[in-house]
């Protein structure tokens, strides 16, 4: 039986509230996976916007970010994200895979990407993670643009 695949592009940061809302239509399907008693491992990766990033326009020196702005080519981005999730689910025999990515502005400290997998054994969950992320960065038409924070360090908002 194929695993359950959920992939969604969400406007803005992936806050707990945004995640809950995006996953609401899929909750029953995901709960069914766990109710089978077949799940032996779950693994979740959160991609978070970090403060310091290399600025390739300034000889690669590190500079403070304010936000990352994610641009997606729709609807191709959503289709490629789903196709990638389905292919990784199938390749590693996962019981479920959830992939969510932000579109638009995401501030430092906020989550822009969530990948959660469930499998019968730990090995396939652990191996699926890097396989998915490597291909995400090659195949899914999503681009990020740095929005730099040029305010003095002492005045920056801590998250």
């Amino acid at each position: 039986m194929p695993g359950t695949v959920v992939s969604i592009i969400v406007d803005g940061p992936l806050t707990p509230e945004a995640l809950a809302e995006a996953l609401l239509p899929h909750r029953a399907d995901l709960e069914r996976v766990h109710a089978t008693g077949n799940v032996g491992a779950t693994l979740r990766f959160d991609g978070i916007v970090r403060r310091m990033e290399r600025d390739t326009k300034m000889s690669g020196e590190e500079r403070a970010l304010s936000h990352l702005e994610y641009q997606t080519y729709d609807p191709m981005a959503e289709r490629e994200l789903r196709s990638l999730a389905a292919s990784v689910c199938d390749r590693f025999g996962l019981l479920s895979i959830i992939a969510l990515h932000s579109r638009g502005l995401v501030a430092v400290g906020e989550v822009s990407f969530v990948l959660e997998v469930a499998s019968a054994h730990r090995a396939e969950a652990i191996e699926a993670m890097p396989a998915f992320i490597d291909r995400l960065k090659q195949d899914v038409p999503i681009w990020k643009r740095a929005v730099w924070d040029d305010s003095p360090p002492a005045t920056r908002v801590k998250r």
């Binding site: 994610y70 080519y73 191709m76 990515h101 995400l136 960065k137 999503i142 681009w143 990020k144």
Partner: peptide, 10 residues
Amino acid sequence: VALIALVGGG
């Protein structure tokens, strides 16, 4: 037609 170069989400 779209140029899909240097993607980099995540």
